[in-house]
Design a binder for these strands. Structure first.
Lengths: 220, 220
DNA sequence: TGTACATCAGTGAACGCGCGTTCACTGATGTAC
DNA sequence: TGTACATCAGTGAACGCGCGTTCACTGATGTAC
């Protein structure tokens, strides 16, 4: 039994490349899968295909992931973590002003969907359940909680007429509108994209403003 | 060359069952595929599997659909047609009152997603492009146009302050909020479902009311 | 009304292919002493 | 510092399987006369 007096070794988990048999294959598989998802969607490739794209034999991925779904779930988990960080930053940038903070979060939401469509697809349209992972649930909670906190701050500032809106409801409205716009107009699904008269970002900002105006928060 | 003096034959395209080799296989394949989609999602089955589920050889479906994607695309097309009808009815029920009509459309939107999750999934998360079908585009246009018309009626009634909102934008906001709630809280994706404090229908109704209030249309 | 023919939906056998998965292996790295 | 050993990531061969797709066929229905 040894104490934690490990000598300083080069970090293996992050940054190390082309050293051992392959390098760190785990990350390479994730990268390759993200590229395949971006091209064909979360259901558009096989486990063997990811291995091939990473330049490795078809048996190699089994050392790192139980199966194809575990790979996609891990991509979703990491996606939710980056997503939460992005939303967190957006919230912190304009924290004192709830309306500005919520708009910032909306912009960050679409920015993520635009910059990481593959991760976004794995997170919200994985093609299989993906519930049973505790880490994944925690990661998605973290992301949602940023919006929930923003909604709470907004409702605390509330000075409208009528009854005070429940913060959770407001958070869900914000999330649903953001997701709706992202799914319909930013992703690969072209269901309605062609009839957009404005950028998705502007559409979302306008929608949030109109909505928040009813809460007595925005002057319009 | 004959004139159209055909004798009255039993209608073959609709209603006929268990008569010929199989009956009308085309509809049976669609039904079987809907069941498979409901169970495993739009990407969770093979062409051969649909044939098996319909009690037919693996070669039979080729008489009716070019390939698996053509089947899913047809399901999406028919889905959009039923969807458009449902929205149309909802709109007609309360047409003179724009706010009531929009709320009706919202309820109809979620009712469709709830009653036909398989068709809804094929329409909005088919797992492949599905753009190139003119009939499908027309069907999805018909559905969206109902909401657009409702938004135009609402904006015509507009008596708020500030500048008049463009009807197309309002229609897109309504659609996006509805789709966001449907995708996050009604479908099979459990990303956030567990934290819902109210029924999706109530969440959507509240969101639409708050939104429409800003347009000077709703009193609450 | 009856007969001969055309049509066409579904059959089942056949094929090549790539996938998922396992297995004993190999060879580079880490570690004890 | 050197050596022997343990660890463990990736190999490549092997397997059974089901899929996609084609093909000549068959047999029920529709139609001409």
């Amino acid at each position: 039994m040894r104490f934690t007096s490990d000598p300083p070794r080069p970090p293996r988990s992050e940054g190390a490349r082309e050293s051992y048999h392959h390098g760190n294959l785990r990350e390479a598989l994730i990268t390759a899968a993200l590229a395949l998802i971006a091209e064909r969607g979360p259901a558009g490739f096989t486990f063997a295909e990811v291995a091939r794209a990473a330049g490795v034999s078809a048996a190699a991925p089994y050392r790192h992931f139980r199966d194809r779904n575990a790979l996609v779930a891990e991509i979703a988990r990491q996606g939710f973590e980056r997503f939460a960080t992005l939303l967190e930053d957006a919230w912190n940038t304009a924290k004192p002003d709830p309306v500005a903070a919520i708009e910032n979060c909306g912009r960050a939401y679409l920015a993520f969907a635009r910059r990481e469509p593959a991760a976004y697809a794995a997170m919200f349209e994985p093609g299989f359940p993906l519930e049973d992972d505790a880490n994944l649930l925690r990661a998605s909670d973290n992301a949602f909680n940023v919006v929930r906190r923003a909604a709470e701050a907004a409702c605390a500032d509330w000075r409208g007429k009528g009854s005070r809106p429940p913060p959770m409801m407001v958070a869900l409205h914000i999330w649903a509108l953001s997701h709706g716009i992202a799914a319909l107009f930013v992703g690969r699904t072209d269901a309605l994209r062609r009839k957009l008269p404005m950028a998705p970002e502007d559409l979302l900002e306008a929608g949030l403003l109109i909505y928040l105006q009813s809460l007595g928060l925005s002057a319009a």
